[in-house]
Design a protein around this nucleic acid. Structure first.
Lengths: 142, 142
DNA sequence: ATACATGCAAATCATTTGCGCAGTC
DNA sequence: GACTGCGCAAATGATTTGCATGTAT
């Protein structure tokens, strides 16, 4: 039932995710993997992302942008999502600090803490009244 | 730009969400609204859910199940998602307790804290080895 | 040899959008 | 009357799946 064989593509995906802190979506991972294995398919990338997630080697994040973001760093940390530029930042978390005093109706195995706001970079940026939100920026340019 | 007119359907959606603590998905809200306005469409429900969310009257939750869940209670609280039955529970949060000591790269306007695990109800349930996960239960039966 | 991995194309599922008409201000 | 809301149907976009073939053990 848990018999996974070695897969070059799966390894490439894991290395790609461990090599960035940008929390990329699946198609960006695909672009990276294709640089090494040009025949790789998006379907294969998705299949392997699921396997890696079930093995606890990566995290799948829902940051409320429609597409999932993947994270090769599985130590406990939170994420800050800028609602202007869409960037996802890591935030250190003080272990066990936040769950204290909460009424939790079960046994917690994992958690996801996402903070939404405007990042410092966007706050200091001068805003032109031309109405560009920048929210939907080109995903490929990271 | 913010000129919304009164809409019976939108009001019904808001009341529906304020009348439950089950964090329902859009199509469940639709079923409820149709009981009062049978002609209402899912597209209209989605449009109004977005408006209500932008007005800060409801919350849209990503609990990692593909579809968004909506919440008519906007006070600060966290959610516990059972990975067996898929139920979403509310958890009280001690105001400002968890953000302390974190390195946040911007100004936080909102946050979402989701805990994943197995709820007490499922833990006490006897498990038959028939392989049913129950994860994909019928959404309509709430 | 057997079971898992992959490519390809088609399917799925939640959500969104264009358009013409209806309701509100 | 101008502008927003609605129903309908079609479009979209991310993710999944069936099937035949390739690869690891």
């Amino acid at each position: 039932m848990t018999g996974y064989k070695k897969s070059r593509i799966r390894e490439a995906i894991l290395e790609t995710l461990k090599g960035t802190r940008t929390h990329p979506p699946a198609d960006w991972v695909w672009e990276e993997v294709k640089k090494i294995y040009p025949s790789a398919t998006l379907a294969t990338v998705y299949r392997n992302l699921h396997i890696l997630e079930s093995q606890g080697k990566i995290l799948a994040l829902d940051v409320g942008q429609g597409e999932k973001r993947y994270d090769g760093f599985v130590h406990h940390h939170a994420h800050f999502v800028c609602r202007k530029c869409g960037e996802v930042y890591d935030c250190e978390i003080k272990e066990g600090s936040f769950a204290k005093g909460m009424n939790i109706p079960g046994e917690v195995e994992a958690f996801q803490l996402t903070l939404y706001g405007v990042c410092e970079r966007c706050m200091t940026k001068v805003m032109f009244p031309t109405g560009q939100s920048g929210k939907k920026q080109d995903k490929r340019e990271r």
